[in-house]
Nucleic acid binder design. Structure first.
Length: 571
RNA sequence: CGGGAUGUGGCGCAGUUUGGUUAGCGCGCAGCGUUCGGGACGCUGAGGCCCCGGGUUCAAAUCCCGGCAUCCCGACCA
């Protein structure tokens, strides 16, 4: 491809609205242009990268037994109503109406469509399993689109769905898909971890996220350096030890003492006021359990993990009080709640609450706290449960080693769905004995456009992008240097010949034939980031060589003019 | 949804506080010339509903009101 013809204009300045490196460099390099918030045009260079990711995904999905199909982006809302997800997704869905005012949405995912599609044609155990996937645009009207491709409202996703007779059969495909994901991300050059996850809107039991490790990621995940434990911070647990446990009320505990703490509804403020540490205060969080009021107790320096709280009350559902809830429950003094609040229907506490003999707690009265509250004497706990959000240094639930926390970009997510969708949408099969059962499903998402951004986050430097060979839009960037040294057209002739030879050898070549000064060409070559740059100029030709630079390492060497193809094809 | 900010040629910005001729600068773009191995220089030129709508005024990019868009922060931790 001749750069003089390529539809790509590089920008000298950073775009003002690009906050992260991937967004900034993809726009500067002419890979991407914004059309609206969270919506982008993929220019020729960018689209080539996206297609390369697509090909890798397609290859590995096919190896894993997937069959590619294409589902509609515009989907009837009525179908979503059958699973209740029109409500569950709420304003996250782009909605539209046709001329008859029938409701539709732009597909944020496709469980409903695929499940009804499979159910329409398959009804026997002999048909199963089947594993179907598509690579298609998805639409989510995010609360806050940001970071360019990392949280976009339109994004390219590979979504796969598998259907099985039972859980055991699902597990096989699930494992095969996990392996395929690992291969895909490895081929794309990403440093990633597979972490345990909560399933969120999709629903279901077991799920794992694939996180590309990156500082700009929006998700925290916990991992253990000593074993293979890794989990999304919401799903993470820790080893509960009985070390430091105090049972019953100590005989020598001082009496409770009420203290005035005006206008100090926060832990830190109260601790500072009393000259104590936050972990000497007991945090009492109100929550709703199907209409009942619960209290969750954790040390003042820890936070309640809403997901852990929800697990603790299963099969019921817990939701921490919001300001609105406090407004409805005037009897609960926000900021001054204590563990002995009489209006609570249940009291849960994290085992860490057993580790201190005496606590500062809220006095259940605005502007007052209480010192020397003792477990077993002044308050009691109904249920002990893991409630706190894991922090670095907590013991690994598998091996007890100190856990670490990192940030990541969620590039993939695999789920074992069970029969939720099959039941709601009537996807049943008949077994050998003539009995009917709902199909057991798995689903597997992978964000291709997000992979592109994650790769750029990992592969760039001050000068621009440095694509891994597997994703680069072109294999080689040929820079021809014109100027007064090239009065005879010798450089152009040599460059065109080399480009032709490289292309004949199967390499894709970006050929900078523009009438521009060398500095401009070098800067653009670094910005665009092809893995190998070949510089062809009069100086080199005089010695029958061209200059090679490896973009990622900056390494340079010289290649004999008649050995260029051999040098670049390793032959 | 709450808070903050911004909206001026393709890109990055100044001008707005204190209203006043033809609205500026850098990059980019076009032409000519000199240059030519890490973002050259000179001359000439094209390109602007100053986000949109209403209002105030003799006069609005500038003041007022209302929209829209974009970006950032936050959106339960008591």
């Amino acid at each position: 491809m001749r750069m003089s013809k390529l539809f790509a204009r590089t920008l000298r300045d950073d775009p003002a609205d690009a906050e992260v490196d991937s967004h900034r460099l993809l726009v500067r390099g002419g890979y991407l242009r914004k059309v609206a918030s969270g919506i982008y045009s993929w220019l020729p260079l960018g689209y080539r990268v996206l297609r390369r990711v697509e090909e890798i995904v397609r290859e590995e999905m096919d190896v894993a037994g997937g069959q590619e199909l294409l589902l509609p982006i515009v989907q009837p809302l009525e179908l979503w109503a059958r699973t209740g997800r029109d409500v569950a997704y709420g304003p996250l869905m782009f909605r539209l109406e046709d001329r008859k005012e029938t409701g539709f949405c732009l597909s944020p995912t496709a469980e409903e469509v695929i499940t009804t599609t499979v159910a329409a044609d398959y009804s026997s155990y002999r048909d199963l399993p089947v594993n179907l996937y598509q690579i298609n645009w998805k639409y989510r009207d995010e609360l806050r689109p940001r970071f360019g491709l990392l949280r976009a409202r339109e994004f390219l996703m590979k979504d796969a769905y598998s259907f099985h007779v039972d859980q055991a059969d699902l597990a096989k495909t699930y494992d095969a898909m996990r392996e395929a994901y690992a291969k895909i991300f490895t081929r794309c050059g990403l440093v990633f971890r597979a972490v345990k996850a909560q399933s969120g809107e999709i629903g279901g039991d077991t799920s794992q996220e694939f996180m590309a490790v990156a500082g700009v990621g929006e998700d925290d995940f916990v991992w253990c350096a000593a074993c293979d434990y890794a989990a999304n911070v919401e799903a993470a647990t820790r080893q509960i030890s009985d070390a430091g446990r105090v049972d019953g009320a100590p005989a020598d505990a001082p009496e409770r003492e009420r203290v005035h703490t005006p206008d100090l509804p926060g832990i830190d403020g109260v601790a500072a006021h009393l000259g104590m540490q936050p972990n000497e205060l007991l945090k009492t969080m109100a929550f709703d359990v199907d209409g009942e009021v619960g209290l969750a107790l954790v040390p003042g320096d820890r936070e309640v993990n809403p997901t852990a709280l929800d697990r603790a009350v299963a099969p019921r559902h817990a939701r921490l009080f919001t300001d609105d809830d406090f407004a409805e429950h005037r009897e609960l003094p926000k900021g001054y709640l204590g563990p002995d609040f009489t209006g609570a229907d249940l009291v849960l506490a994290d085992p860490l609450v057993r580790e201190l003999r005496s606590w500062v707690t809220g006095a259940n009265e605005t502007d007052y706290h209480v010192k020397h509250s003792v477990l077993g004497r002044d308050f009691n706990v109904g249920t002990w449960a893991d409630l706190v959000t894991v922090v670095p240094g907590d013991p690994c639930p598998n091996c007890g080693a100190p856990l670490k926390i990192d940030r990541g970009i969620e590039v993939g997510h695999v789920f074992q769905l069970g029969t939720k969708y099959a039941e709601a949408l009537d996807a049943r099969y008949t077994d050998e004995g003539g009995e009917q059962h709902p199909m057991v499903m798995g689903c597997y998402g992978l964000g291709l456009s997000r992979v592109v951004a994650a790769v750029v986050e990992e592969y760039h430097d001050d000068n621009g992008i440095a694509w891994p060979a597997a994703l680069a839009p072109y294999d080689v960037h040929v820079v021809e240097l014109l100027g007064k040294g090239d009065t005879t057209g010798e450089v152009t002739a040599a460059a065109s010949r080399i480009v032709g030879e490289l292309e004949a050898a199967g390499l894709s070549v970006l050929y900078d034939d523009r009438d521009a000064r060398p500095g401009v060409k070098f800067a653009d070559a670094d910005l665009l980031g092809m893995p190998v740059q070949l510089t062809i100029g009069a100086k080199g030709l005089a010695r029958s060589i061209v200059e090679r630079k490896v973009r990622a390492s900056g390494e340079r060497d010289e290649v004999a003019l008649d050995g260029v193809v051999a040098a670049l094809t390793g032959g």
